[in-house]
């Protein structure tokens, strides 16, 4: 009956149960699975990094002929990936920065690696500033400039259509108020230059309440997603096993 079952399934099932054993307490079986997982994944990602980043994005741009001669074919650096002219020599910059970073391995030359680190952190932080200013500031201001009385056609229309349907004036107005005052009071909460007392403190407290309600909704949503992952794992353990036994 079990002869139909693939060996890889048994390995996967054993490692799954070994990781689950952590729920009881730390134990040698968990340690074995943990070390296997860490060791294999570290080696795997290093290999992926070399073949999907270092070779195609750097070596194939700088010296495609040399890479292809080592590989014995042009499968690693196809002609379409070649660059010419000054663009080719620009790739010397990441090469030099990478070598400087590797100098950290040298006991005396470790400080040289700080130049690369400063370059990476500085450049990307500057680019992120632009991105955040665009998405978190400009777009947010624009999205929050809404009317507090959407589709207002007078009190008669408002009270004549009282319902909890999504397109009712009551729900639309309530949503607009929550968006506006939630954003405004959330901003007040994250204002650090003033003590949160008086009306400022009240607005700040309302802001944190809005945040907590949002977090609560997010928590429930994500927990349900995690349960679906657990169900998937159980399906792997039992559903696939039964399928293989029946095949």
């Amino acid at each position: 009956m079990f002869a139909n079952i693939d060996l890889t399934f048994w390995v996967g099932a054993f490692l799954t149960v070994a990781i689950f054993s952590f729920l009881y307490k730390d134990n040698p079986v968990y340690k074995l699975a943990e070390h296997l997982f860490v060791g294999i994944s570290a080696a795997y990602w290093m290999s992926v990094g070399i073949w999907t980043t270092l070779v195609p994005n750097l070596l194939c741009r700088l010296c495609p002929g040399w890479v292809n001669s080592l590989a014995g074919s042009d499968c690693l650096c196809p002609p379409a990936s070649h660059v010419s002219g000054y663009e080719r020599w620009i790739y010397l910059v990441p090469l030099v920065l990478g070598i400087l970073l590797l100098m950290r391995l040298s006991p005396k030359g470790g400080w040289i690696g700080r130049w690369s680190l400063a370059f990476i952190v500085g450049i990307t932080a500057g680019l992120n500033l632009l991105r955040y200013m665009q998405s978190d500031f400009m777009a947010q201001v624009q999205a929050t400039m809404i009317t507090l009385l959407p589709g207002w056609q007078g009190f008669g229309h408002f009270f004549g259509n009282l319902s909890l349907s999504l397109d009712s004036p009551l729900v639309a107005t309530f949503s607009a108020w929550v968006v506006f005052f939630g954003t405004f009071c959330g901003l007040v909460y994250f204002f650090f230059s003033k003590e949160h007392k008086g009306w400022f403190g009240g607005a700040s407290r309302f802001g944190i309440w809005v945040l907590m309600v949002t977090f609560g909704a997010g928590f429930g949503y994500t927990v349900m997603a995690r349960i679906s992952l657990l169900v998937g794992r159980f399906r792997y353990l039992f559903g696939d096993l039964i399928d293989m036994m029946n095949s």
Binding site: Q134, F137, M138, A139, Q140, V141, Q142, T144, M145, I146, T147, L148, L149, F180, T183, F184, L187, V188, F190, F191
Partner: peptide
């Protein structure tokens, strides 16, 4: 910057209530 954001929101609120909803376009990229 957050203070400027809050002021912009309040101006936007008054402007939209006055029927000038195109003010949001100032922040459109």
């Amino acid at each position: 910057a957050k203070g400027a954001f809050a002021v912009a929101l309040l101006i936007g609120l008054v402007a939209t209530l006055a029927g000038w909803s195109s003010i949001a376009g100032w922040f459109h990229l």
